[in-house]
Design a protein around this nucleic acid. Structure first.
Lengths: 136, 136
DNA sequence: TGCTGTCTTAGAGTTAGTCCAAATTCCATC
DNA sequence: GATGGAATTTGGACTAACTCTAAGACAGCA
């Protein structure tokens, strides 16, 4: 957990017990959890943790650039600790979100977008996991 | 409005006054409205229209393939009558959503996605409208 | 030890959307 | 035109995700 404290400090976040507990999960997960899922998960080891703190902490982590908030699924945001460019696949059956390595796709601008100042480009692939081979 | 009635029938939707009123707006707009925005807008000419009917109607239109539901902005879905492939730009300042013509970008699959059965690929570009030229 | 500002908390409030059961409208058939 | 079952609409209750608020706990330091 020393690792989490260090990460927080590096991003100018005062490490409190709660923040370290939330960070210990959300900074290393591959699950793309929603805020409520983070709460459920961290509460297992930290039962007195309040919902408001989870939301506060996640929003703070986003603002300080420790994680990204993704708008992919209906009704709720999910959080992703991977900051390097990559794409996402959404399993329409289970709702699971998988990372798609950046070099799997090429997105090329063919024409200019006049008057638009681009900040990020997000590719979301939706479909199903077919039964056959192992996951990505 | 005869046009809307025809469209509904072609998609096997019984045209009612309410459905035609909602369709008259949402089937031809370029605004990417949320359900609440559709309600506000259609109520102007149809004040007795209920919220539940708007949600029912929009969901029905999506199920019958008249419009698409997009998950792009925080907290709410928006609806888009354009069914041909195209991309979207989100103005992070105003929240406005603009259509980006399909041939502006090229998305090419460079590697296989084993075990994934792709249904749709969505490209969302986020940024700001710079002051200079007219919109897209 | 006390002070000040930060952090956490429970619960109330808000927003987007669904559910429900009653009322209304539609329409085929008599 | 009357009638009855099905489809549609309605308002309000309900839910989920999230924010706000005000009060209390805690941390750092003088």
């Amino acid at each position: 957990m020393e690792r989490v404290t260090k990460l927080l400090r590096e991003h100018h976040i005062q490490p409190s017990a709660q923040r370290v507990a939330v960070g210990g999960y959300v900074l290393f997960t591959e699950e793309h959890p929603s805020a409520e899922q983070v709460w459920e998960r961290v509460k297992e080891n930290f039962p007195w943790l309040s919902r408001a703190t989870v939301y506060n902490t996640l929003n703070l982590f986003v603002k300080k650039g420790l994680i990204r908030e993704l708008i992919i699924t209906e009704g709720k945001s999910v959080f992703d600790p991977r900051l390097d460019p990559h794409h996402h696949f959404v399993d329409e059956e289970s709702g699971d979100i998988l990372d798609i390595p950046f070099d799997t796709l090429e997105v090329r601008r063919l024409k200019d977008l006049p008057g638009l100042d681009i900040h990020e480009t997000q590719v979301i692939i939706r479909g199903r996991r077919s039964a056959a081979p192992a996951g990505v």
